[in-house]
C-alpha cells in the first residue's frame, strides 16, 4: 500500500514537472529518487564533534591518572564540553541514523589519525608525538588507535609533565585542524570553528602555566 502510494506520488510529481521541463529545468523523478548529498559542513562538523569527544576522553584519562592536575584541567575540560555541545547543536541528525554508534567510533579513530597528521607539520608538538607513542608501547601503526571499546584513549602518557605536554600537543593539533578546514564551511560554522580553535590555542598557554612547556 505504502509503496503504491509512493509510486503514485512520484508519478504525480513527474506529471506536474513534465510540462515545466522546458521552461524551468525541473529535474523530475530523479530529484525525488536520491536524498540530497550532505553539504561539506556536515562531514566537517562530524569530524569536529569526533575530535572534541576524543579531547574530552583524553582530559578524563589525565584527570583520573593525576588527581593533582584536576583543578587545572577541569575548567579546560568544561570548555571542551561546551564546544562539543555547541558543535552537536549545529548538526541536524536524520532519524534513520541507526548505525550511528558504529560510525562514531570509526570517526573518533579517524579524528585521532587526522590529528597526528596535523601534528606532523613542523611545530613543537611534532617533536613530542613520536616519543610519546613509543613510550606508551604501541607501534607507529595508525589503524585502531583511539578506538578502544569504552572510549578510553590508550595514548595518554604517565607522569604530570608528559601528560600536560601531551594535552598541549593535542590542543595545538585540534586548533590547526579546525583552522585548515575554515575555507570549506559556511560563514556561521566558520565563526564557531574559528572561536573553538582560538579557545584551544589559549588552552596550550593555560597548560603551560600548569607545568608544561610553552
Amino acid at each position: 500500500m505504502a509503496a503504491d502510494r509512493t509510486r503514485r506520488a512520484v508519478l504525480a510529481a513527474g506529471a506536474v514537472c513534465l510540462p515545466m521541463l522546458a521552461v524551468s529545468g525541473c529535474k523530475g523523478v530523479g530529484a525525488l529518487a536520491a536524498p540530497p548529498r550532505p553539504a561539506p559542513d556536515v562531514a566537517i562538523l562530524r569530524a569536529a564533534i569526533a575530535a572534541e569527544e576524543l579531547m574530552i576522553a583524553r582530559y578524563d584519562a589525565v584527570v583520573r591518572g593525576s588527581g593533582q592536575l584536576a583543578a587545572v584541567l577541569r575548567p579546560l575540560r568544561a570548555e571542551h564540553r561546551a564546544h562539543l555541545a555547541q558543535l552537536r547543536s549545529r548538526l541536524i541528525v536524520p532519524p534513520a541514523a541507526a548505525a550511528r554508534s558504529a560510525a562514531a567510533s570509526e570517526e573518533r579513530s579517524a579524528a585521532a589519525a587526522e590529528e597526528r597528521s596535523a601534528a606532523a607539520s613542523p611545530s613543537p608538538a611534532a617533536a613530542a608525538a613520536p616519543a610519546l607513542d613509543g613510550a606508551s608501547g604501541r607501534g607507529s601503526s595508525d589503524a585502531g588507535s583511539g578506538s578502544a571499546s569504552h572510549g578510553e584513549p590508550a595514548d595518554v602518557p604517565a607522569g604530570r609533565a608528559a601528560a600536560i605536554s601531551f594535552l598541549q600537543g593535542a590542543e595545538r593539533a585540534a586548533a590547526a585542524t579546525l583552522l585548515r578546514k575554515l575555507p570549506a564551511v559556511s560563514p556561521s560554522l566558520a565563526q564557531l570553528m574559528a572561536s573553538v580553535a582560538a579557545s584551544e590555542a589559549t588552552h596550550v598557554a593555560a597548560l603551560a602555566a600548569a607545568g608544561g612547556t610553552a
Partner: peptide, 9 residues
C-alpha cells in the same frame, strides 16, 4: 587570567 570557551562570541 583564565580562558573562555568561545572567544569573540
Amino acid at each position: 587570567g583564565r580562558t573562555v570557551a568561545f572567544p569573540g562570541f
